[in-house]
Amino acid sequence: MRYSRRMERVKPSAIRSVQKKIVQKQGVISFAAGLPDPDYFPLADLKTATMEMMEESGRSALQYGMTKGYAPLLDLLVERMRAKEGIDAKPENILMTTGSQQGLSMCAMLFLDEGDVVVAENPSYLGGINACRPYGCGFIGVDTDEEGMVIADLDNVLSENPKVKLLYVIPNFQNPTGKAWSLERRKQFMEVINQYDVVVIEDNPYGEIRFRGEAVPSLKSMDTQGKVVYLGSCSKILCPGLRVAWICADESVTTQFEQIKEGLDLQCNQFAQMQVASYIQKFDLDAHVETIKAAYKKRCDLMLSLMQEHFPSSVTYTKPEGGMFIWVELPTSLSADEILDDAIESGVAYVPGEYFYANEGAKNTIRLNFTTVSEEQIQKGVLLLANVLKKYI
């Protein structure tokens, strides 16, 4: 087979490689997942919404739909973005995608040429980086602090690298660090990017899962030049298996995305879109999200308190205000990847943080997830991991 040169740049997911190791060892407590808790999928309500939707509009649900998406769902999403993110959008600004991952791939396809440069937070979501790799671009990581991307560093990167075309950021409870940008940092970020000919991809799958602090407006709500492409998703607030997500951008940009999507898959799953619309219309999605937030906060707080009690004092970690992840930093002399096999053998697993860097990454870092494990598993797993770390520290 004569594969394209593009395939030489495609890399397998290192996270899924870790998952394979875990599967091979029975009974391991895994903090390596990046999944919502299936116990909080609203099964009964979704079933009711689906059955009523089928009775009311079954033929339409099973038929082809518009490439842009199911019109009543577009209207509902416009309302929700205005209420939750402060985004003043119209249905013309939205295109439905098959998960946010498709949105990332479409952004890369639309904007990137060979030799362009993508700027991302350092570290960043591996799926966003891998979506860009096939297009022959380079990557530059910009470090973050507790308030978000370091603006002075970003300005230097943009001024010194005219080939930067795309910035990929996750301002809310970032994967993998769990950090959220402050309002002031978001304002500073927008001031800087408005000085350059660049596009910003604002990926926001975790934004509604804030269980501490006040909500902060999205970058898209501050966008006065049409530079921000916003990616939203139902995966973390409803369920990921439906793959219902969307792009919100300037109308001229969504028109381009619509043309791309026609060639990719013609349209998103019409049935799933109508399921989600029916659920939002008939049930209280906000109340459902509050239930998820309360459960995740309890687990996050438990994990943090146990880490504080049992981890060696030289180990530091983030204290997220929402989302699904805690970022751990070990002493710089240690490699989390080299310790992983020992941890799995002891009965606990995580994802080494070095996999979340576009280029060479910090080897002394770990991503922990707290959403797919029970409180009992958190109590046991943190103690097991603490004992492993004490062997090396």
Score class of each variant (00 low, 15 high):
E376M: 13
Q102D: 04
I209N: 06
S30G: 07
T371D: 06
E8S: 14
F283G: 00
K261A: 07
K293M: 07
K68R: 15
P352T: 06
G99F: 00
K390A: 04
R133V: 02
M307W: 07
A386L: 09
T177V: 11
S235V: 03
N204H: 05
V78A: 02
I170Y: 11
S235T: 08
S221V: 03
L385W: 13
P176Q: 09
I209P: 07
E258I: 11
M324W: 10
R5N: 14
D284F: 05
K236G: 00
M66V: 01
L266G: 00
I326V: 15
M324S: 13
E56C: 00
F173E: 00
N369W: 01
L43I: 11
N122H: 08
P176V: 02
T332S: 15
R82W: 06
M51W: 12
V28Y: 08
Y350M: 02
E258M: 11
D153N: 13
T97V: 15
Q275S: 01
P176N: 09
I260C: 01
G241H: 14
P91K: 05
L304M: 06
E92A: 15
K380H: 09
F283Y: 15
D88Q: 14
P205R: 01
A180Q: 11
I15F: 10
V119E: 05
K363E: 13
M51A: 11
Q275H: 01
D45T: 07
L112N: 00
I201V: 15
T371Q: 09
L183E: 14
Y230F: 15
K163W: 06
Y206C: 00
L104F: 03
P217Q: 09
K21R: 15
K84S: 12
Q377L: 07
P320T: 10
G115H: 05
I260Q: 06
I237E: 10
D284G: 08
A32W: 02
